[in-house]
């Protein structure tokens, strides 16, 4: 298998006439966590949503350039966005549990493909919830509404829901922005284990979080990628002054 999960060449994204991402080139290695840091409005989220073609849903957005997922151009006209999204799961900034039971939330994707085997589904639910560090808290109330979980639990449920899809890549868009430190730690612990199985891309505006969990870090600023390298290097000897200013807290 290719060592790089994603190879992105000269990615340009436009919102109507305005350019919101400028010639991004980046290679994302498999089974690593890529952290993307930068102030809000720098284009991190748009970048992330280009990777599973969620930007298709916004008519104002136009994507140019090449994004290769395992060597396959995901913006090729023949390529089906739905099958890409099945391979590339996504966790949003705010937890969005669907108004249904915890169990039904987790089996949303398997349910789409018509899996009805209860034993299989039960196992899948247990496995996904365990991987998201949520199982012990909810195992006795799987049939209750997901709306009654706390914010931190809801976000881990969203992660479990993505895991149950058995994707190859997991995209996380500031998943801890609304969470308390304990829930944040639970999610970070989960990510460290999950990277053995998945490729993870984590957008965060908490630079310390990137420092804690990411193997590689990219710094976005003003619609461009300023710097990209191993996390240690970015945080100890950044090559660009702006990176240094940002991570030391001079702005952002």
């Amino acid at each position: 298998m290719d060592k790089n999960k994603y190879i992105i060449n000269n990615l340009n994204v436009f919102w109507n006439k305005a350019q919101v991402l400028r010639s991004i080139d980046i290679q994302v290695p498999s089974h690593k966590i890529l952290g993307i840091i930068g102030p809000s409005g720098s284009g991190k989220t748009v970048f992330l949503r280009s990777l599973n073609r969620m930007n298709d849903l916004v008519p104002e957005i136009r994507v140019e350039g090449q994004i290769l997922l395992d060597g396959e151009d995901i913006y090729h006209p023949e390529c089906d966005a739905v099958s890409i999204r099945k391979r590339v799961g996504m966790v949003f900034a705010l937890p969005v549990p669907l108004p249904a039971s915890i169990y039904d939330n987790v089996i949303f994707n398997p349910g789409l493909s018509g899996i009805r085997d209860h034993k299989k589904l039960d196992l899948l639910v247990e496995k996904s919830l365990k991987s998201a560090f949520l199982w012990d808290e909810v195992k006795d109330r799987l049939k209750t509404s997901a709306m009654r979980l706390s914010g931190g639990q809801q976000q881990r449920l969203c992660l479990a829901r993505v895991l149950a899809m058995e994707p190859e890549v997991i995209l996380l868009d500031e998943p801890c922005s609304g969470l308390d430190p304990i829930s944040t730690a639970a999610i970070e612990d989960a990510l460290r284990i999950l990277k053995d199985t998945y490729t993870i891309i984590l957008v965060t505006n908490n630079t310390k979080q990137a420092a804690r969990v990411a193997d590689n870090t990219a710094f976005f600023l003003m619609n461009e990628m300023v710097e990209y390298g191993p996390t240690e290097q970015i945080f100890t000897v950044p090559g660009d002054k702006r990176t240094n200013d940002y991570i030391t807290g001079r702005f952002g």
Binding site: N52, R85, G89
Partner: peptide
């Protein structure tokens, strides 16, 4: 129906 629900659906591979 909140737009975010639709996003969840699409992001989980639903048509």
């Amino acid at each position: 129906v909140p737009y975010s629900y639709r996003e969840v659906g699409f992001s989980l591979g639903a048509t």
